[in-house]
Simulated scan of single mutants.
Amino acid sequence: MPVEIREIQITAAVQDSGGGKSSGNASASPRGGNEDMIAKCVEQVLEILKEQKER
């Protein structure tokens, strides 16, 4: 039985780094990882929509 998602809720937590100092565990390119994640999500959503159209 197919599952239809009518609403999606996304929440995020933003933390201040405290005075602009970089922490030791921060990655070199924090935006690059986010952009990759967004691209993967968009790709998956488009794939789901394509599959629904084929039905």
Rank of each mutant, 00 (worst) to 15 (best):
Asn25Ala: 13
Met37Tyr: 03
Thr11Pro: 00
Gly20Lys: 01
Gln52Lys: 14
Ile48Arg: 08
Ala26Tyr: 07
Ile8Leu: 12
Ser27Leu: 07
Gly18Asp: 15
Ala28Ile: 11
Gln44Gly: 06
Gln9Cys: 11
Ser29Cys: 08
Asn25Val: 15
Lys21Trp: 06
Gly20Ile: 02
Gly33Asn: 01
Lys21Leu: 10
Arg31Asp: 05
Ala13Glu: 10
Glu4Trp: 05
Gly18Pro: 04
Leu49His: 02
Asp36Tyr: 05
Asp16Asn: 07
Glu35Cys: 01
Gln44Pro: 00
Glu51Thr: 05
Thr11Trp: 05
Met37Leu: 13
Gly32Ser: 10
Ala26Thr: 10
Val45Glu: 06
Glu47Lys: 13
Asn25Cys: 15
Ala12Thr: 09
Thr11His: 09
Asn34Lys: 09
Arg55Gln: 12
Ser17Lys: 12
Ala13Cys: 08
Glu7Thr: 08
Asp36Thr: 09
Arg6Leu: 15
Gln9His: 14
Leu49Gly: 02
Ile5Thr: 03
Gln15Leu: 09
Ser29Val: 08
Pro30Asp: 00
Lys53Asn: 05
Ile8Asn: 05
Ile8Pro: 03
Val45Tyr: 07
Met1Pro: 06
Ile10Trp: 11
Ile48Leu: 12
Ile38Met: 04
Gly24Lys: 13
Ile8Ser: 13
Ala39Gln: 14
Ile5Ser: 01
Ile8Arg: 08
Gly19Ala: 04
Gln52Ala: 15
Glu43Leu: 12
Pro30His: 00
Ser23Thr: 11
Glu35Asn: 01
Pro30Trp: 00
Asp36Glu: 14
Asn34Tyr: 10
Glu35His: 01
Gln52Tyr: 09
Ile8Met: 09
Val45Arg: 08
Ile8Lys: 06
Ala39Ser: 13
Glu43Thr: 14
Asn34Phe: 11
Lys21Met: 08
Pro2Gln: 02
Glu7Gln: 15
Ile8Gln: 07
Gly19Ile: 02
Asp16Pro: 01
Lys40Pro: 00
Ser22Ile: 14
Ser23Asp: 13
Glu47Asn: 11
Ile8Val: 15
Asp36Ser: 13
Gln52Cys: 07
Gln44Leu: 13
Lys40Tyr: 11
Lys40Asn: 14
Lys21Glu: 11
Lys50Cys: 04
Gln15Asn: 11
Gln44Met: 07
Ile10Ser: 10
Gly19Phe: 03
Arg31Gln: 10
Arg55His: 12
Gln52Pro: 03
Lys21Gln: 09
Cys41Gln: 13
Asp36His: 08
Gly19Glu: 01
Glu47His: 15
Glu51Asp: 12
Ser27Gln: 09
Met1Leu: 12
Thr11Ser: 15
Ile10Met: 08
